[in-house]
Nucleic acid binder design. Structure first.
Length: 145
DNA sequence: GCCAACGTTGGC
DNA sequence: GCCAACGTTGGC
């Protein structure tokens, strides 16, 4: 899951403990949210910074449910086309798990065969939620060699 | 801050 | 249903 740390960082998540991951307004990303299960591991990725990359991990603690901000006219995530009867956007709650001793930069992810097919490293990718594999999980979290 | 790449919108 | 215009994302 990507986030701009200026808006919401891994450190913010650590301090809050858990957080509803609101504001996803992309259908493909929403569908990935709907596929999440409680207990799933999450990489937290910082984008739009000098050295973008994975900075830590979190855990999915709810299944997908309607994102309340879509109904709130005061919210920047408000969607007038959505309704309580037919919500358009979902979210999951995530809980902080771990901060990497050293961030794993995009530059290094690009070099890994495990990530060769990942949208995460694809030029022009704008998906803020990207599925990951067990191999990718292990590769990023294995101790440095 | 720039701008390529992308998803969405809306006129036709 | 096409596709130009638009707004946004995100690496650099």
């Amino acid at each position: 899951m990507k986030t701009e740390p200026d808006a919401f960082s891994l450190e913010d998540l650590r301090q809050r403990g858990r957080e509803p991951w609101e504001g996803i307004r992309n259908y493909q990303a929403r569908n990935f949210l709907r596929g999440m299960r409680i207990g799933d591991g999450v990489f937290i990725y910082h984008s739009r910074v000098a050295a973008p990359g994975i900075v830590g991990t979190a855990e999915v603690v709810t299944t997908a449910y309607p994102d309340p901000t879509q109904f709130d006219p005061q919210s920047k995530y408000y969607d007038a086309a959505s309704s309580l009867a037919r919500p358009r956007w979902d979210l999951v709650d995530v809980a902080y798990r771990h901060t990497l001793a050293k961030p794993f930069p995009l530059e290094r992810l690009r070099a890994l065969p495990e990530f060769a097919d990942s949208p995460l490293v694809r030029k022009g990718n704008r998906l803020s939620i990207v599925p990951i594999t067990a191999n990718q999980w292990d590769r990023v979290l294995q101790p440095a060699r």
